[in-house]
């Protein structure tokens, strides 16, 4: 359980990156945080593992106030995967990269080997185990950085823009990995601009704009609200746009539902 209570934060005086954010995230939730550049998404998630401490308000992670503990302690509970893999990777080989956190946490070697093996397979990295992460393509590096966090099994996983540079197949695989971890009880928070990814795979969405949360709720209800999409200057999902353009009574982001609605609409006029 994460409670964010009236948190404000500014990097320099006068410009607030977070302007009174309240948010509650239950155990084993799967949610996305979306919003324009500079909306405060990354600043907010850096509060979850204590990298940033609130200037006002407080953040409680499983009952612990982030101001009263260390990043090292929180890191075991909250795994943060950054947007740019070059800022995270440093080991000589992919395998060593994946084992790093586990070794630091004092996990027994047999256990480490097992977890690393799982991550190599889960993220289609087995062929690269002995390669230097720096020789990989952008999309592959991204998967190494995801794997290096997921393999030590933090209860709460935060991913900042995990789909950049990934093709559709990799995105679908990522979604099924996240969904599976979520069903096993992990809390998964995805910060993203990839609105179609959210529409397809993430059940709850939090919309941020100018340092505030401007909407929070079920994805299929929030992403079809034109007022919210306009206010946050997010490009809406294609199907939401279509819904608005043809004036559907119940706009949707679901292909089957849209097809049904349109059939109904055309069928009625045919008669």
């Amino acid at each position: 359980m994460i409670r964010i209570e009236c948190v404000t934060y500014s990097y320099s005086e006068g410009i607030s990156a977070l302007d009174g954010v309240d948010l509650e995230i239950g155990d084993s939730e799967l949610l996305a945080i979306v919003g324009e550049n500079g909306a405060g998404k990354t600043t907010l998630v850096k509060h979850l593992n204590g990298l940033l401490k609130p200037q006002h308000g407080r953040v409680l992670v499983e009952g612990i106030d982030t101001r009263e503990t260390t990043v090292a302690t929180l890191a075991r509970k909250v795994g943060l995967v950054f947007q740019n893999p070059d800022h995270m990777l440093f080991a000589e080989t992919v395998e060593k990269e994946l084992a790093f956190a586990l070794t630091n946490f004092g996990v027994p070697p047999e256990e480490i080997a097992k977890k690393v093996e799982w991550a190599l397979i889960e993220f289609s990295l087995s062929n690269y185990r002995d390669r230097s992460p720096f020789t990989l393509s952008g999309g592959e590096k991204k998967r190494v950085s995801l794997a290096s966090v997921l393999c030590y099994g933090p209860k709460i996983i935060v991913l900042d823009e995990p789909t950049t540079g990934q093709d559709n197949l990799q995105k679908t695989r990522l979604a099924s990995t996240l969904t599976r971890l979520n069903r096993q009880g992990e809390t998964v928070i995805v910060v993203t601009h990839d609105i179609e990814f959210v529409a397809d795979f993430i059940p709850r969405v939090v919309v941020m704009s100018k340092g505030r949360v401007i909407a929070d709720g079920p994805t299929e209800e929030i992403l079809v609200r034109k007022d919210i999409m306009d206010a946050s200057s997010i490009l809406p999902p294609q199907l939401a746009e279509l819904s608005w353009e043809i004036g559907l009574n119940t706009p949707s982001i679901n292909t089957a539902m849209i097809v049904e609605e349109i059939r109904h609409m055309l069928g009625r006029t045919n008669k």
Partner: peptide, 27 residues
């Protein structure tokens, strides 16, 4: 699996219903 746009998917589904091959690319 190259991520066919949603509009293409919807148009394909509708093609049979309207009895013509729809080939739309944008909403």
């Amino acid at each position: 699996g190259v991520g066919i746009p949603k509009i293409v998917q919807v148009s394909k589904h509708l093609s049979e219903f309207v009895g013509e091959q729809l080939r739309f690319l944008s909403s």
